[in-house]
Structures are given as structure tokens and as C-alpha cells.
């Protein structure tokens, strides 16, 4: 079992619901301080977006964040270099599109992530059927390959995804790209279908954009992923202080 999954299973078994905020790497020069503020406020793991020019699964907020990060010359290498300054100890999970790793080299990408303290990776456009080489590369470097399960996923696919996912299973609450608000949606059904086939922790994302929705989702799954709502604050000029209070209020809602 990869170290990400060991840690997230232990977290779940301790009774704590995981809160996983998402940040776009390189969005602002001080983005690492945003990550630290989130950890300080009670994040249990952090997703680090690596910007891609054509983010097919992302709505306007993450699209804009990716565009800004790219304009600031953000790359996989620059993000990994920035991560060296990070002093916290929560798990880091990279999220990007397959072409970034494909272009960098699969083995080289996985090695780079591991060397930068990243213990998981989410590649939303990499279907299970195409993922063998990437999973093999990650296996060499203790990088967990986190797979998504969607409301449209058929039972036979849930079984295969549930068996193949590492670290946690990413339960998509809605048939939508990131940033479309709407709450837990189909999450209960998706989470239940995952739990029937695996004991891996199940986190809910896509559509969680308020404390109430986070609380509702945390009652269904083992954790909650919050992306666009947080990134919007940073796009609007918010700094580490705003990030900290955002995460703190979600933490309180989930724990309350």
C-alpha cells in the first residue's frame, strides 16, 4: 500500500473527516503561503493543480486560474521547486491533465513528484483503460494514482475503478465540470457504490462550494474536496489570511 493511502486510511480510522482544499500552483507568487495557511487552518491534505492550456474537466474559475498561472510561466518544474519551501507535513496530491506528464515523461514525472514530496496524482482525462503505463510509473515512486468515479459510472466500472484507485476514491458528486455549485447531488449513491467494492477512503468533490454543502458531503463520504470556491477567493485578490479563514470555516462546518 502506498504511503498516501496508509495515511488517509489512518485519518479515517481516527474518526476525522478529511478536508482537502485545491490550489493552482503558481497562481500567485506567494501561492505556497496559501497552502501553508490552509494546512494551519486544518486541511488534512492538499491538491496542487499543475496548469494546462486545455483543462477539459474544469469550469471557468479553474480555467482562469490555469491561464494566469501559465502567463506567470508556471511549469511542472517550477511548481516542484516552489514546493521545496513547504514546511508542512500533510499529503500533497498533484492534479493535472495527462499531456503534462506525457510530455515530461511518465517515469520522470512520477520521480519528480516523489522528489518534491507529492504522494498522489489525479489525472482526470486519463481513463482507466489508458492508465496502465502511468500507474506502473507511479508504482516505482510511491505516488498513488487517484481515480474518479462519476454518477454515470456503471457498476462493472465502479468495481474496476474501486479496485484500481489508490490513496482514496474521488467521488464526483455531479455530472459537471469543476466549479458548478449544487451540493452533494448524486454523491450518496456514488459513495455507496464505491463502498460496496472497496474499503479505500472515499472523498467527495465537484459541486462543493459552501460550508453547508461541505458539511452535508462529509456526512456521506470520508472527506471533502473544495476547489473552485477557494480559487475564486484568490483570483479576487485574497491572500493567506482569506485562505486561512475560508478553510477554518469549512473545517468548523465539517467538524460541527
Amino acid at each position: 500500500m502506498k504511503s498516501l493511502e496508509t495515511r488517509l486510511r489512518a485519518l479515517r480510522d481516527s474518526g476525522r473527516k478529511a478536508l482537502v482544499p485545491y490550489f493552482m500552483g503558481g497562481l500567485t507568487p506567494d501561492w505556497i503561503q496559501h497552502v501553508e495557511a490552509a494546512v494551519h487552518a486544518g486541511a488534512d491534505a492538499v491538491e496542487i493543480g499543475i496548469p494546462f492550456s486545455d483543462p477539459m474537466m474544469d469550469g471557468v474559475v479553474i480555467q482562469e486560474a490555469a491561464l494566469r498561472a501559465l502567463r506567470a510561466d508556471t511549469t511542472l518544474d517550477s511548481i516542484c521547486a516552489d514546493l521545496e519551501a513547504l514546511s508542512n507535513s500533510v499529503p500533497l496530491i498533484a492534479m493535472t491533465y495527462f499531456n503534462i506528464f506525457h510530455h515530461y515523461g511518465l517515469e520522470r514525472s512520477a520521480g519528480k513528484l516523489q522528489a518534491s514530496g507529492v504522494s498522489g496524482a489525479i489525472v482526470p482525462d486519463l481513463a482507466l483503460e489508458e492508465a496502465d503505463e502511468w500507474i506502473a510509473a507511479c508504482d516505482q515512486h510511491d505516488v498513488a494514482t487517484v481515480l474518479l468515479v462519476a454518477p454515470s459510472t456503471t457498476p462493472d466500472r465502479v468495481r474496476r475503478l474501486g479496485q484500481a484507485t489508490q490513496g482514496f476514491a474521488y467521488a464526483s458528486a455531479r455530472m459537471a465540470v469543476t466549479g458548478r455549485s449544487g451540493g452533494a447531488g448524486d454523491a450518496a449513491r456514488v459513495v455507496q457504490s464505491i463502498r460496496e467494492v472497496t474499503t479505500v477512503p472515499t472523498y467527495i468533490g465537484i459541486g462543493i462550494s459552501s460550508e453547508e454543502q461541505a458539511k452535508e458531503a462529509s456526512g456521506i463520504g470520508d472527506g471533502v474536496i473544495v476547489g473552485s470556491a477557494l480559487v475564486q477567493i484568490i483570483l479576487d485578490g485574497g491572500g493567506a489570511g482569506e485562505v486561512e479563514s475560508f478553510v477554518r470555516s469549512y473545517r468548523a462546518a465539517i467538524d460541527g
Partner: peptide, 12 residues
């Protein structure tokens, strides 16, 4: 070729 799509679109 291949099929590099999000899981949400795989069934379709």
C-alpha cells in the same frame, strides 16, 4: 488514438 476522457464520459 485511444480514449483519453474523464470517467464521466466513458460510459457515453
Amino acid at each position: 488514438g485511444g480514449r483519453f476522457v474523464p470517467e464521466a464520459l466513458m460510459p457515453a
